[in-house]
């Protein structure tokens, strides 16, 4: 696989109250910040991908309004997932593997304060047998917390959700030499994978997360020590579960940023995990970090991304003398 790194990350000052921000207000400053941080022009972006959820503000095509703000002129190669923007990052990373583009912009946004997430999350469950019961995300999480408590985990079986949040995040990806040019310490993606599991809770063991375990194995989390991990833990009981399924050692610091419990702009929360983890590489405080994003009831769908300061071991791209110097400097950190 081609070497691709997170070279810039920006997130909004998330708010627990509706400040009247539109999607445009949320996204545009962040796009400007990641471009300014790297010196890239909009016209140099090879691919753009975003993640959002129409139901949060109760309108179709909420991503169209965001597109109006990112300067998509001349027209751009662009796509959107109705998922957390961590999956938009995955789509962009896959697209960059074709080899013809070197940069991609990824963003996600969510206005959690204007909707009732208990009701909205219920609409994402089986519409015939589960959604009519309106269990909501907290009710579903409660089932998992209770299962964990009964299995001997030291967790609160009565979970509380994070406060509804308005916010957004943007990430800039770059490949090979372009990443080295744009960023002093690129956060190289050395493993990324996501897996889903059955939706029906009746066919799952809620004391584990097979999909998180699979994603972690495919992303090779266990191939080296982990300094920091940013986990998409909207509920406290999910941390010990994910620590186990991702194979994180005791010394791995989880959610040094405060995590989703302190800022949960739905559909950006997972991308923020990747951004926050990458930021530990950018600022030189970590050599190897893990980011995790989740979706669905009781961690049904999990994405795991490993980022490293060191150059990936894969086939190296031909580097010029200047890049060789930068590589050596990075190695001394």
């Amino acid at each position: 696989m081609r070497d691709i790194a997170v070279v810039a990350f920006a997130q909004s000052e998330h708010s627990f109250t509706d400040l009247g921000w539109t999607e445009a207000d949320l996204v545009m400053p962040l796009v400007n910040r990641v471009l300014a941080a790297t010196g890239l022009q909009r016209s140099e972006i090879g691919f753009t991908c975003s993640g959002s959820n129409d139901y949060l503000v109760g309108t179709p095509f909420s991503f169209v309004a965001a597109l109006d703000t990112i300067g998509a002129w001349p027209p751009i190669a662009e796509s959107h997932v109705e998922q957390d923007a961590a999956w938009a990052l995955y789509e962009a990373w896959v697209r960059m593997q074709h080899g013809d583009i070197d940069t991609a912009l990824v963003y996600g946004f969510g206005k959690g304060t204007v909707g009732d997430y208990g009701g909205i999350s219920s609409l994402s469950y089986d519409p015939y047998y589960v959604a009519p019961l309106m269990p909501g995300d907290v009710g579903m999480a409660g089932l998992q917390a209770r299962a964990l408590k009964d299995a001997g985990f030291d967790v609160d079986p009565d979970p509380t959700p994070p406060p509804p949040t308005d916010g957004a995040a943007a990430v800039l990806l770059a490949a090979g030499d372009v990443a080295r040019r744009l960023c002093a310490r690129p956060a190289w993606i050395t493993g990324i994978d996501h897996r889903i599991e059955a939706h029906s809770l009746g066919s799952r063991d809620l004391t584990g997360s097979a999909s998180a375990r699979q994603a972690a194995q495919h992303a090779a989390v266990g191939a080296g020590p982990v300094d920091f991990a940013e986990l998409h833990t909207r509920f406290e009981h999910e941390e010990p579960l994910l620590r186990r399924e991702l194979g994180l050692a005791e010394q791995a610091v989880v959610n040094a940023s405060g995590g989703p419990r302190k800022a949960d702009p739905i559909m950006a929360t997972g991308l923020i995990r990747i951004g926050e983890a990458a930021a530990r590489i950018h600022d030189g405080s970590a050599r190897r970090v893990v980011a995790h994003a989740a979706a669905g009831p009781c961690l049904q769908h999990n994405l795991v991304c490993v980022l490293e300061a060191a150059e990936p071991a894969g086939p190296a791209e031909p580097a010029g003398p200047a890049d060789a110097v930068r590589t050596a400097e990075a190695g001394e950190d």
Binding site: L123, Y125, P127, A198
Partner: peptide
């Protein structure tokens, strides 16, 4: 997703 009233239906369709 308003067409069917099922949000992020890939979860249920998995």
């Amino acid at each position: 997703d308003m067409f069917e009233g099922v949000a992020t239906p890939e979860l249920y369709l998995a």
